[in-house]
Amino acid sequence: MTARALRLHLRARGVPRFGAGLILVTVFAGVAAQWLATRPFFDGPGARVPVVALAPLLAALLLAGTLAGADESLERVTPVRWRLVRAAHVGAATVLVALLLAATGLHDPAVYGSYALVRNTLGCTGLVAGAAVLIGARLAWLPAFAYVVTVYGASPARDGGWENLWAWPLQPSTAGWSWAPALAACAAGAVLYVRWGARG
């Protein structure tokens, strides 16, 4: 793929817009995390739960728009090795989002900081990628959005046990089991997406 073809492909997928949105989300996450962590009436870095839950979700929502072209069936009849392209696309995007967001939580990264942001990025992008395959890129944002928003709204009162599993976006990164569903979602979403691509 030449540089020009790559540029055209990225434009066709709306990547420039995604990049701009991602920068906004990163800045917003950084500012909000800093503000929350320095409020005297909160428990320091532990107050960053909303950022940890919502910033990766927002980034994943923006990513959803880049997962399909204007006409999937038109693209697929071309001889490009789409699985490779899709793998690179979803892999690079996940790494980029994870790195950028992790940078906003470097202060005390273990207490609702970088680690949890990385875990939630993996989980949310996995959910979005999987949903793009199952219900199409247009609505791919919906399951992740509904899930995280509802988990956050339900704000599980205790951690430990089942909450670690189903409420993974809200668990501290030290809750080992919370990584399992996030990693599972990431792996399943990526595999589905790379194998089949977004539903047309």
Binding site: P50, L54, L57, L61, L62, W141, V149, Y152, G153
Partner: peptide
């Protein structure tokens, strides 16, 4: 746009919180 609904929903969520 397609992403207006989720992004605005999230913004309201943050606003209400």
């Amino acid at each position: 746009g397609r992403f207006t609904a989720p992004v605005a929903g999230l913004a309201l969520y943050v606003g209400l919180a």
